[in-house]
């Protein structure tokens, strides 16, 4: 009997965890979109007010933001600082591609960021600021969408995990 109770507990716990894990995707996507927005705002400041060089600015921002977002900035910064003949857009999109597994972003989010990379570093300050603001706007829209989706699915997956676990435990009992 005790074994059965322990087993059921394990089942409920695991399934709840699976539910939380499934819900995490939605939470993290929204969080990463926000992180990219704050990183881009900082990049805007670096470009507009400090005229920092792109590789330096990328490394600095990446270091302080951390997480998957930070890694994208750091990898791009390192590629550029190495002067290995990458163009900015190549370095940026290769970083996005390479770190895909660590990011929770959806295809459409990555596409916005990739397009942003094509313009990065290649025009004067006004141009750069314009592209950054445009990208910020698009990311913000995506974030809002992500929030709506999150609200819908987060609770669902969490309850599904818990309830599914309980159901399974009852059946097996």
């Amino acid at each position: 009997m005790i074994l059965k109770i322990v087993n059921s507990c394990v089942i409920v716990l695991t399934s709840t965890l699976i539910g939380f894990e499934a819900a995490k995707r939605y939470v993290m996507r929204a969080r990463e979109l926000r992180a990219f927005q704050s990183a881009l705002s900082r990049l805007e400041t670096e470009i507009l007010h400090y005229s920092s060089l792109l590789p330096e600015a990328m490394l600095q921002i990446g270091g302080s933001i951390g997480g998957g977002t930070g890694k994208v900035f750091i990898r791009t910064g390192n590629l550029l600082a190495g002067k290995k003949n990458y163009s900015v857009s190549e370095a940026w999109s290769s970083s996005l591609q390479c770190l895909k597994g660590e990011l929770f972003l959806e295809k459409e989010d990555v596409e916005i960021l990739r397009r942003f990379g094509e313009q990065l570093g290649s025009s004067d300050k006004d141009g750069q600021v314009k592209y950054i603001r445009l990208t910020l706007m698009q990311l913000h829209e995506d974030e809002e969408k992500a929030q709506v989706i999150r609200e819908k699915y987060e609770r669902m997956y969490k309850s599904l995990g818990l309830l599914g676990g309980i159901a399974l435990a009852i059946i097996l009992l």
């Binding site: 470009i47 005229s51 060089l53 003949n85 163009s87 900015v88 570093g121 290649s122």
Partner: peptide, 10 residues
């Protein structure tokens, strides 16, 4: 890009 260190804006 290379001579400007990828930062033409600067």
């Amino acid at each position: 890009q290379l001579i400007s260190d990828y930062s033409i804006y600067a």
